[in-house]
């Protein structure tokens, strides 16, 4: 019985993950894509270069703990 419920839980988890990914991909991503297009129309790329200036603050142990 325990084995059966474990397997059921696994199937439900996989289903839930795919449901979540499906909602994300088919419902939210199109909205984001439209927003991206709107913002990209507003963005002016500098002519003659494609470098981005980096103005990051100095790293310390605190910032290195972040995965972002």
């Amino acid at each position: 019985m325990k084995k059966f419920f474990k397997k059921l839980l696994l199937v439900l988890t996989i289903f839930e993950t795919h449901l979540f990914m499906g909602i994300l991909y088919f419902l939210l991503f199109p909205v984001f894509k439209i927003l991206y297009h709107i913002f990209s129309l507003l963005k002016i790329d500098p002519a003659g270069t494609n470098y981005r200036d980096v103005r990051d603050k100095d790293d310390d142990l605190h910032t290195l703990k972040r995965g972002y």
Partner: peptide
């Protein structure tokens, strides 16, 4: 590397390439 920053780029790429990124996304 910073994994969350990298994931940010992965999601962004999938959005930009939507709906053609479908086979890679799942």
């Amino acid at each position: 590397e910073k994994p969350v920053l990298k994931f940010d780029r992965i999601l962004d790429t999938h959005i930009r390439a939507w709906p053609f990124s479908y086979p890679a996304f799942f």
